[in-house]
Design a protein around this nucleic acid. Structure first.
Lengths: 325, 325
DNA sequence: CTGAAAGCGCTTACAG
DNA sequence: CTGAAAGCGCTTACAG
């Protein structure tokens, strides 16, 4: 490339790196850019990374590719990364939120840092070996492994769900919990218990756990709907689970929301694909990703960013209605 | 690392690279491995890649992270990659199937090849500049850009849908097409037209296009259901669209499948989240990803792999039934 | 303003 | 069997 332009390697690097002002003449800079254009020249990333010791790349670890949530998180992170000439590499953990085998082997880009969303804390231990800065999303804020944490306000979301149902007159509420040992679901359970516990006359009549699938949700819902008296509302940790409850209700001959109110969480596309549409909690997924990337850049910059909490919103829709008497 | 083990750099490289047999003594090899363990030593990927000229990394370009299909494709590709000490880096094209801006800037890992799934052909032009081998998945088989193509048997899937409906006595069928200019959807449309056209008495009464969302599908379905006489079945290019039809049907007071049969395509988790569950076509997504990775490895190995077609299966469920008379 | 040179950490001939 | 050396393609002091 340098020979093609008839200039030194240094000039090429300076010009293409945008650091030429005051070090290379405008004329030379122009020559370089033309030649680069001509040749379709792309700097070798491996060489640059070896020389600078940085790959300008972050890895985003997510438990699953399914669902819109992580897609949004990635979109947000990628946007911010792009603004800082950074790249984002996605690593879907093969084990779900469980232990990530070895991201460094599988997505082997040279990395400057890791952003992990909604993973179980223990799952990230292999990441620690890398000695890379770790930003956690939707995760335990006091985790000592994390250089920074960015969370949607999960507890507030669940409180809003509870308030919404209490407003509608529901007093016998069941909880369909995600059987997943992560911070986000533990918090959802706790916030619901507290909100209901603090309201005189309201009762959390039962809790069932289920894996994050419609089928498991449906199976657990069957048990909940067999209770007597039947709860008037089922709060689900997740929209997928709520879909299972809706199926179970229909098969049990219960109408939603006439006989039973159902709430989801996350506002996945699924929430509006169902009929009736799900009342759920919308998480600012894009913003979570973007804030996570910003936090990582700050850490890389030597700063010590604080924990960030992002507001969530209740999306009241057709799956909730007044409690039957 | 070499100094720590008290051996030469070369020995370390040989041992850790598994190429030491007959070149390094067993004793030295053991020493190296112990030291590496102790130090938590990880070879610098940038240096290796610079030296060898290969990053042992493939990029998988997908139009969206939403939905299980691409997650499965990735899982398959990552599995095969891992077996060959390769990594896979995911690149969700920000523009959907449209033009991918510049993957090399955004997911900047040094790459040996690209696998692109379900993208519009033109969308990949910026990839071509990279001069990297390109394997296309779920794409036009005769595309000159592709070094290899791996396709699920889309046409056969659509033929099975048509046969299923014809078996059930449906003769007035409507098509809800995905408004997406990619090979996979063009082929779905063509196969359906042909299958219906070849069957005496059957008629494709109408076709509507819609973007790949429940809302757009529902809107287009409203038009289809306003036709007189009403079609007895709606064939959808995709499960998401089928969800929209089911919503529209319920709102129009039509029962599925009593008054109207609905079919999807892809067998997303959504298909069984709905009530009734969708009759749809299951694509071997994992196998598509795995075969794609194998094809890329073959190309990298100097071979010229043929186009691969993978069988699909009809998943008959509750959204289709006998045609009303 | 410009170019020659060092060096990032590997792998792979090559000489001992 | 072992080690010294070259070189991958960059970036960044450094000398002219």
């Amino acid at each position: 490339m340098a020979r093609a332009a008839g200039v030194s390697q240094a000039s090429v690097s300076l010009v293409l790196g945008g650091k030429w002002r005051g070090r290379v003449s405008a004329r030379t800079a122009e020559t370089v850019r033309e030649a680069a254009q001509q040749l379709g020249y792309r700097p070798n990333l491996a060489a640059r990374s070896l020389r600078t010791g940085s790959a300008r790349t972050a890895m985003l670890v997510v438990p699953a590719l399914t669902g819109d949530f992580f897609a949004q998180v990635h979109a947000g992170a990628a946007r911010v990364a792009g603004e800082h000439d950074f790249g984002v590499v996605l690593y879907p953990s093969p084990e779900g939120i469980g232990r990530a085998p070895d991201p460094f082997d599988s997505a082997r880009a040279a990395l400057d840092g890791v952003i992990a969303s909604s993973m179980a804390a223990e799952a990230l231990s292999s990441l620690q070996d890398g000695g890379l800065p770790l930003v956690m999303l939707d995760s335990e804020p006091s985790d000592p492994m994390a250089s920074a944490v960015v969370n949607p306000d999960i507890a507030d979301g669940m409180r809003r769900v509870a308030a919404h149902l209490l407003d509608l007159g529901h007093r016998r509420v069941a909880h369909l919990a995600a059987d997943v040992p992560s911070w986000t679901f533990r918090l959802r359970a706790r916030a619901l218990h507290e909100a209901l516990g603090n309201f005189p006359g309201a009762e959390l009549v039962a809790t069932r756990g289920a894996a994050l699938s419609v089928q498991d949700g449906q199976r657990a819902a069957d048990e909940l709907l067999a209770l007597r008296p039947v709860p008037t509302a089922v709060v689900c940790d997740d929209d997928v689970l709520a879909a299972g409850v809706c199926k179970a209700a229909r098969r049990a001959g219960l109408s939603v929301p006439g006989d039973l109110s159902v709430t989801g969480f996350d506002d996945l596309p699924l929430a509006t694909a169902l009929e009736p549409e799900l009342t759920t909690v919308r998480l600012p997924a894009q913003e979570v990703g973007a804030a996570g990337m910003r936090a990582l850049l700050a850490v890389l910059d030597g700063q010590r960013p604080a924990t960030t909490t992002l507001p969530v919103a209740l999306a009241p829709r057709a799956s909730t209605g007044p409690a039957p008497h």
